[in-house]
């Protein structure tokens, strides 16, 4: 979805060093309006540094950044009005209730509709009357998510949004992200694994050692994804009939059971199978993560949580 020709986020040759440690060595990124962008990489690869530069918490050494048509360095206050940010670490030490913290943060934005806060809190099952200090990690994360979404920003920048959320809440969160996208708003979210964002992301990039090493359109990736499909028929079938089909590989038949690998769309296979009586069908979820990494490592195997010299992320 690229309704607007101007990208929402554009980074060119972004570098940043902390003393002798080089955190970013030339990051290039483009995020289109209305996209959900997954920003992936191991800890210390430069995800948080990049995000903090976008918010003008950290100042870049060189390179260009355009965010919602402005430069965070010059137009930070104006740009941050349209951004919702979830920090990777949420410090919440106040004895005051969550509602008060959210109201305060809303006032920094010139006021936020209370109903919006209530609605988001209800959605995530967050009790706004409890003091933030005593909240569990998951509940603190909910407070963080509410403050990021409550003013309906044009751009959401979320640093590890799913950390601390149980699977049910992760789904709730992904639903919210889909709604935001449906409204033409943009989501930029980091994670250290693809599986957390693959269901919702339109684009994904991998950063390692301060450099973007992979950029993928998730639909393309899904198209290339391999899945094992097993079909059970009422009568024996001929392997030959299926191995000729488009996208179908390694078809083999054992009695009435066909197993094969499908690369991309299973359309041809389904249509061919439909001419027989199908008793059972199983299809394994493709492992996009493995595909993602093998593609860019030229077969060096799935990548890793390595990278030695990562200090300040």
């Amino acid at each position: 979805m690229t309704a607007d020709p101007l990208p929402v986020i554009s980074c060119r040759g972004l570098t940043k060093s902390y003393g002798r440690h080089r955190a970013l060595s030339g990051v290039d990124l483009t995020v289109a309006q209305g996209d959900v962008f997954g920003f992936l990489g191991p800890n210390g690869a430069g995800k948080t540094t990049t995000i903090r530069i976008l918010l003008d918490l950290i100042r870049r050494d060189s390179g260009e950044v355009t965010l919602l048509g402005g430069d965070p360095r010059r137009d930070g206050v104006r740009l941050r009005r349209d951004i919702g940010y979830l920090p990777g670490e949420l410090p919440m030490t106040s004895r005051r209730p969550a509602r008060e913290l959210l109201t305060f943060l809303g006032r920094l934005r010139g006021g936020v509709d209370r109903r919006e806060i209530e609605a988001l809190a209800e959605r995530f099952g967050l009790d706004l009357n409890r003091p933030v200090r005593g909240l569990s990690k998951g509940n603190k994360q909910k407070v963080g998510l509410v403050q990021a979404f409550m003013h309906r920003p044009r751009l959401l920048i979320l640093d590890e949004p799913t950390s601390g959320l149980d699977p049910l809440l992760q789904q709730q969160f992904l639903d919210l992200v889909r709604e935001v996208r449906a409204e033409g708003r943009t989501v930029f979210m980091s994670s250290h694994v693809l599986s957390e964002v693959q269901d919702v992301a339109d684009q994904a990039a991998i950063i390692r050692a301060g450099r973007i090493v992979a950029l993928e359109d998730m639909d393309d990736l899904r198209e290339r994804a391999l899945r094992r499909v097993t079909l059970t028929f009422a009568e024996p079938v001929d392997a030959e009939e299926f191995s000729r089909l488009e996208h179908v590989r390694d078809a083999s038949v054992e009695g009435t059971t066909l197993t094969c690998t499908v690369e991309g769309s299973p359309d041809a296979l389904v249509k061919a199978a439909a001419s027989h009586t199908v008793l059972g069908l199983t299809s394994e979820e493709p492992d996009l993560e493995e595909l993602f990494f093998t593609h860019y490592n030229n077969g060096r195997g799935p990548a890793p949580q390595e990278e030695g010299s990562d200090a300040g992320a």
């Binding site: 903090r52 003008d56 918490l57 949420l90 410090p91 030490t93 943060l105």
Partner: peptide, 14 residues
């Protein structure tokens, strides 16, 4: 050091 400042500064305040 607590991280509280980061949250405030990510808002539209100078």
């Amino acid at each position: 050091e607590e991280g509280a400042l980061e949250l405030v500064l990510s808002h539209p305040v100078s």
